[in-house]
């Protein structure tokens, strides 16, 4: 029996969360949850509707060293935000590839983060930008690096009494980009993607649909600036980082080869 709780304030929300240690399903934009419930993929029946809290948890602002995106900000709002456009064009590019324009008006950044899909488009980009998430509970806040937020397939570093309140993206002078290869050019599910950010001999890499959960490619990052690496070398190096699967949309082999091509092409570019 599905039940939906509808807290009107943050206080009410935490009262619910503190009352019982339960893995609630949070309804934010609903773009993933609604079809998943319909198809029987999502089986949790205790929902909390966050729509009354949307105003308080929506918007983008900055402090000295970071741009801060509140958790229930939609991707349509993100795309229009001047700060984000100025500082993180790669993240804007990724956000435009989430579903189509209809989905972007509903889907929220925190929804994309907690859904933890290996194919989620915003995540590789946020990982390479060294984003952090603020976890809020009645006990206060804790801040955790996004790279440490994912521990396994749909296994997240978040307690049942916590919600994501902010996404913190440190400003930097790194060059960043995001490349997506999908099933089509809009309303597409990513078959494989690569995000990167670099400066001098430092690089951050992350790939979508390449592993059970979103992650950085640490082994590849470490060896990325070695001299005279070949395509074959990257094939070996990348195997330490990723192991893409076969599924309804593509093959693991395809995903791996394309990722290798994209990484090697970037390598050649940056060797120049």
């Amino acid at each position: 029996m599905i039940s939906v709780l509808r807290p009107k304030t943050t206080k009410e929300l935490f009262e619910i969360l503190d009352k019982e240690d339960k893995n609630y399903l949070f309804l934010a934009g609903g773009t993933d949850i609604m079809p998943s419930i319909k198809k029987g993929i999502e089986k949790r029946e205790d929902l909390i509707d966050l729509s009354f809290l949307k105003k308080g948890f929506s918007g983008v602002y900055r402090d000295k060293t970071n741009i801060i995106v509140k958790s229930l900000t939609t991707f349509a709002k993100i795309q229009k935000d001047e700060l984000l456009n100025k500082h993180f064009p790669s993240f804007i590019k990724a956000s435009k590839l989430i579903g189509g324009y209809t989905i972007q008006g509903m889907a929220t950044i925190a929804g994309n983060i907690v859904n933890a899909s290996p194919a989620a488009d915003s995540l590789p980009s946020l990982l390479t930008l060294n984003a952090k998430v603020t976890l809020l509970s009645s006990n206060g806040e804790r801040i955790i690096e996004l790279k440490d937020f994912y521990k396994g397939y749909k296994n997240l570093e978040i307690k049942n009494n916590e919600i994501i309140s902010n996404i913190i993206i440190p400003t930097s002078d790194y060059q960043a980009d995001f490349i997506e290869v999908g099933t089509r050019k809009a309303m597409s599910i990513t078959k494989v993607s690569l995000a990167y950010a670099y400066k001098d001999k430092n690089i951050f890499l992350s790939a979508g649909s390449a592993f059970a959960y979103p992650k950085r490619l640490f082994a590849t990052e470490k060896r990325f600036f070695e001299k005279d690496l070949t395509k074959k070398d990257f094939e070996i190096i990348l195997k330490e980082d990723v192991s893409p699967l076969d599924d309804i949309r593509s093959s693991g082999n395809y995903r791996f080869n394309v990722l290798r091509n994209l990484v090697f092409s970037l390598y050649q570019e940056l060797q120049k």
Binding site: V4, R6, G30, M34, P35, T74, Y101, T102, G105, M106
Partner: peptide, 21 residues
Amino acid sequence: CSVLIDGELSLACITPATQLE
């Protein structure tokens, strides 16, 4: 099923009643 909700383009087939207040 596209409609506008508070000015944003939205999909009526995945918008639940609880979010309409």
